[in-house]
């Protein structure tokens, strides 16, 4: 039981997503905040964890750096699911980045969580990711 798929995440300087990924305890590649920094180089199918930065109209939900990363076809083709985060206090745009990426890239939204997540989120996601990792192994080998 239990190898999660490769993980890629974005976290701005406020660090909520980074703290969530730290607690998750799996290796994960961070998409850099700086526009000129090199992007992670992925070879295996991966899951993307992406926070939401939408204004009240939903614009700007997906961070520019994540767009830059997904605009590279080799990256996009390996994406097998997205985890969206946000804050319910933003109403209908809660975790919107996950839904936008899901539609654009035709992958499922696997999970949503708020800010740096709760222990319940960590437990559910660990179990889910490990199952997903196993099923990816059995389909690719």
């Amino acid at each position: 039981m239990g190898r999660p798929p490769a993980l890629v995440y974005y976290s701005s300087a406020s660090g909520n997503t980074r703290r969530f990924v730290d607690r998750l305890g799996y290796e994960a590649a961070r998409i850099p905040i700086e526009p000129d920094a090199p992007l992670p180089d992925l070879r295996d199918p991966f899951v993307l964890i992406c926070p939401t930065y939408a204004d009240g109209e939903g614009r700007g939900a997906v961070p520019k750096q994540v767009i830059r990363f997904l605009n590279i076809p080799e990256n996009r083709n390996q994406l097998c699911g997205v985890i969206g985060s946000g804050n319910r206090n933003f109403g209908a745009t809660y975790a919107l980045a996950g839904r936008i990426i899901s539609e654009k890239c035709n992958v499922p939204v696997l999970y949503t969580f708020e800010l740096a997540g709760t222990q319940t989120d960590i437990d559910r996601l660990r179990a889910g990711l490990e199952k997903l990792g196993d099923s990816l192994c059995s389909t690719t080998s």
């Binding site: 083709n77 996950g98 999970y111």
Partner: peptide, 19 residues
């Protein structure tokens, strides 16, 4: 905004969309 928990959904089969 629906709540997403794909993992606790129906059974063990994951439908992975192809990008």
């Amino acid at each position: 905004s629906e709540n997403h928990d794909f993992f606790s959904g129906s059974g063990s089969s994951y439908v992975i969309g192809k990008a």
